[in-house]
């Protein structure tokens, strides 16, 4: 039995060494590869200048054609919309922009029904930040707030790569290792949607909450750090119920640019909350005209 226990202890020790080795290897590759995700792209812009930065949820990700902005204005733009982002996620990305010392002329932040959401975090942003969990105090603070199993993730080597295996497991590690490019960098963060297949059942909240602590945090953080933030609202389709919510939001945030009703053609929408590629092109042109060309 002693021999067996010794044998098992050796296997267990080997397991720990393998876990540490794999954790180190995966993290190193993610840190040093060409950007494949939006966060890696943001990280690669350390100490650089981007003229316009767009923050928000998938509604921004699918609506702002960054390359079109560059073509029309000659200025650089990056779309940092993350799927399922709330104000808290946007606040984190804003802090990361500051942390990485990325210079910019304008930071355009989407505010709409997400103003009403204070709980929860974008799982997409979580996946993308996961290999960089110890990167800086901003990412650490983000995971302190968002992760339920933070201790396991933080202190068990390789557990994060097992737990989020479909997104940051071996397949993604390998693609990072061989520097396989994604369209994220090519499109400067814009993710186009194709087609038009929506039902007319989209609804905005009927009530608006008195305040969102993360929105307030964004405003204060931007003021302190002299970051040029602008709040705007991406189009909804005309069938959206309770569109009055945006009017209420505008009363609360007078500086909000309300573009919720600027696209009327249903064919421009993938669904009631998301523009398709044609819609994104039209809206980006409109946005350039209204906000990005100095007249």
């Amino acid at each position: 039995m002693k021999k067996f226990i010794k044998h098992m202890m050796l296997i267990f020790f080997g397991l720990i060494v393998i876990l540490l080795f794999l954790d180190f290897s995966f993290t190193t590759v993610y840190e040093n590869s060409e950007p494949r995700t939006k966060f890696q792209y943001l990280r690669s812009l350390k100490n650089k200048k981007v003229d316009y930065i767009f923050l928000g949820s998938s509604r921004v990700e699918n609506s702002i054609v960054s390359k079109l902005i560059r073509d029309k204005t000659g200025k650089s733009a990056i779309n940092l919309g993350f799927q399922a982002s709330k104000m808290s996620d946007i606040y984190t990305v804003l802090k990361l922009i500051k942390k990485y010392n990325i210079k910019t002329d304008k930071i355009l932040i989407q505010v709409d029904y997400i103003f009403n959401i204070e709980d929860g975090c974008s799982n997409i942003l979580q996946y993308e930040l996961m290999p960089f969990i110890r990167e800086n105090e901003v990412t650490q603070e983000y995971f302190n707030r968002c992760l339920i199993n933070k201790k396991e993730i933080l202190y068990t080597p390789f557990y994060r790569y097992l737990h989020y295996e479909p997104k940051i497991g071996f397949r993604e590690f390998f693609l990072n290792l061989i520097n396989k490019k994604t369209s994220i960098v090519k499109n400067n963060g814009f993710v186009p949607l194709q087609g038009n297949s929506f039902e007319h059942n989209n609804s905005l909240p009927s009530q608006i909450i008195s305040k969102n602590k993360y929105f307030d945090g964004i405003k204060t953080f931007a003021e302190i750090n002299k970051m040029p933030v602008i709040f705007f609202c991406v189009p909804f389709c005309k069938h959206t119920k309770n569109l009055i919510f945006i009017k209420k939001l505008k009363q609360k945030i007078p500086e909000l640019y309300d573009f919720s009703g600027v696209i009327n053609n249903d064919k421009m929408f993938k669904n009631c909350s998301h523009l398709n590629q044609n819609g994104a092109n039209d809206f980006t042109k409109y946005l350039i005209e209204k906000m990005l060309i100095d007249k």
Partner: peptide
């Protein structure tokens, strides 16, 4: 072979789904 198998289980395994 044990080391390779453990590495395969950890690195190549499917867990989340």
């Amino acid at each position: 072979k044990v080391t390779l198998c453990i590495m395969a289980i950890i690195a190549l395994g499917t867990y989340s789904d």
